[in-house]
Write a protein that binds this DNA or RNA. Structure first.
Lengths: 220, 220
DNA sequence: AGCCGCTTGTGAACGCAGGAACAAAGTCGC
DNA sequence: GCGACTTTGTTCCTGCGTTCACAAGCGGCT
């Protein structure tokens, strides 16, 4: 039994698949039944050829001369991304950003739901956000085990992010999304994905300044 | 007069430079005066050779046999990134996420400050967040012009993100950071950088599931 | 003063992502 | 029923990013 597909999808493609999924959901809600690669690519902001290549990674199911069936394609992408079944996540650090994340509707509609909110500050513990009650840090390990949460989100200050990371890993979490402005180290087998909002802004500012100053003084 | 440096820095390098800047600031606060590439790379979570190549893009200033001077390197990176002088930004959409962004201390310490907060909901207008008062959308254009804000941050619902984007561009904003789960289109000369929190989670979840299921059923 | 060890900076090779062009296939019109 | 058009899926190619490996340079020790 051979495996016709290489079974390995580039990370850049995965990120775009998530975008396609979002666009397709919007199209389905709008009543569309079929879409061409050109139209979908335009809506997702990518090159049509690249979109077709991305879709070919999941053994594509388009109809030549017609396009893609919106519902079928959406379901297939959701299955590949594992978004058909909602995944339990825990969120540590219920400050401003953590509160926003706990209340963010985008997660629930895209295959994720929080099963535990944790904060070290007694002032935060007991508050209810998005239907969940903030728990003290002491209950982190038992809650992770009880809910079988496989994904952890860190939104704590930078100076405690590594400790929180270690505790999550110890509790069995294998995937961590880190919003703290710190570089986390984790053992092999654990994915840590950093999302630094300041870095995004700095890259944006640099591109803008580079465009504004084609060949002028940077050395001055 | 030739220009010894290509004057063009890859985007991936710029993103890492921002991380190095953060690490260097931490080292400087800790009293360190010099750092080797290996140590800095370890703290930033990258390959030492790659770090040296990144630094070589800005005409590097390390001392062989010793390493890099922490303060000097920090200042040089800050200058290249344009982070020595704080840039004025406007923020549109003061929901949960917008509130968190307006209050996020990380921006202020990294060369950005908000000069205007805007929301379409009268219930939000008038509130004070991080020292600024939320203004109605009508005042967006005049405020952008008055403050000469060059960067706009969109944290609105997806269905109005494009309108907000158009108004920002019309008002003269050339760089936009988009947190709304929507693909924005802008004319040439305007940079739009999407930050989709759900996409980050979905990529993370996919990597985790791919690791958990080496070669099992995905087609089922 | 000379040697040794350490660290930087750069050059080359590898792998990957992105884009364009072409062949296959299916549908619509006549 | 047949031809032509539309759209997908694939293949090739170009460019970029990353990594490895080595030469050059500087400080410290004897």
């Amino acid at each position: 039994m051979i495996q016709p597909r290489p079974r390995t999808i580039p990370e850049a493609t995965v990120a775009r698949l998530a975008v396609y999924l979002r666009v397709l959901t919007g199209l389905a809600d709008g009543g569309r039944t079929t879409v061409s690669s050109g139209e979908l690519a335009s809506a997702a902001g990518v090159n049509p050829a690249g979109l077709r290549k991305d879709l070919s990674h999941l053994g594509s199911c388009g109809v030549r001369g017609v396009g893609y069936d919106v519902r079928a394609l959406r379901e297939r992408i959701a299955r590949v991304l594992g978004a058909e079944r909602s995944r339990p996540c825990v969120l540590v650090g219920i400050g401003n950003l953590g509160t926003a994340l706990a209340d963010y509707a985008g997660f629930g509609s895209r295959g994720f739901h929080f099963v535990g909110l944790f904060d070290a500050s007694p002032a935060r513990v007991g508050h209810t956000i998005g239907g969940l009650t903030v728990q003290p840090m002491e209950e982190l390990e038992t809650a992770v085990t009880a809910t079988d949460a496989s994904i952890g989100v860190i939104a704590t200050p930078a100076d405690v992010a590594q400790q929180v990371c270690d505790r999550l890993v110890e509790a069995g979490v294998r995937s961590i999304l880190n919003f703290a402005p710190a570089t986390l180290t984790a053992p092999a087998g654990v994915d840590v994905r950093p999302v630094d909002l300041s870095v995004e802004l700095q890259v944006l500012a640099f591109l803008g300044q580079q465009r504004a100053v084609p060949a002028a003084e940077v050395t001055a």
